[in-house]
Amino acid sequence: MRQAIVWLNDPLNWTNPGGILDRLGEHVTLSAGAVALGCLVAWPVGVWLGHRGRGGNAIVVLSNLTLAIPVLATLTILPLTAVGFGRPAVIVALAIFAVPPLLATAYTGVREVDPQTRDAAVGMGLSGGQLLRRVELPLAVPYLAAGFRTASVQVVATATLAVFVNGGGLGQIIGAGFGLGMVTGGGQILAGGFLVAVLALLVESGLALAQRALTPRSLLRPRRLTGAST
């Protein structure tokens, strides 16, 4: 424990190349890339499926299946395929696990729009596209925000594992500590674990606040939205 505090208090451990600030930057870049890629793929598909009201079962099957795939497997397999080694492979590997929560919440969000609201919109002469843009999407925002939060927290947590394929991120600090052995590296292991845990909890609480701010008050009262779907 003392060792960890000493390690964290050494300014060189923060600013050195490959120090905490570098690793933090890598971690955030990897996570942001993965979540962005996940949103880019999952949101259009989820919203479209929700709009058409189809594919609900397929989404459930997909999320159960990805639950069973180890992150370690995608991290090690992807670099050996056409994706190639380097950062893109890590980002794609993490994005795979961001897709199910994003897809499921986008689908549910659009699906959960009150049928009467939808009828009224159609009765007012809105076309399918207008209905989607002006009615269904705005009403689905709280769900999209909840899915974004779940996916982000999950990706930030799993990005730690990039260390196994030398992909960078805060996990690298823990990995280096294990490499030094318990006696000399123990403090560094603890410090790395502490940093990762704090980052995950910060992202979780920050996004929880953002989600609350994004949700219109009128939607907040009648039904409580819970973030994670697991």
Binding site: V156, T160, I174, G193
Partner: peptide
Amino acid sequence: LYTIPALAVFAFIAP
């Protein structure tokens, strides 16, 4: 406890 990455938990208890 669910949010804290598993690798961080390893880091806390392994020493």
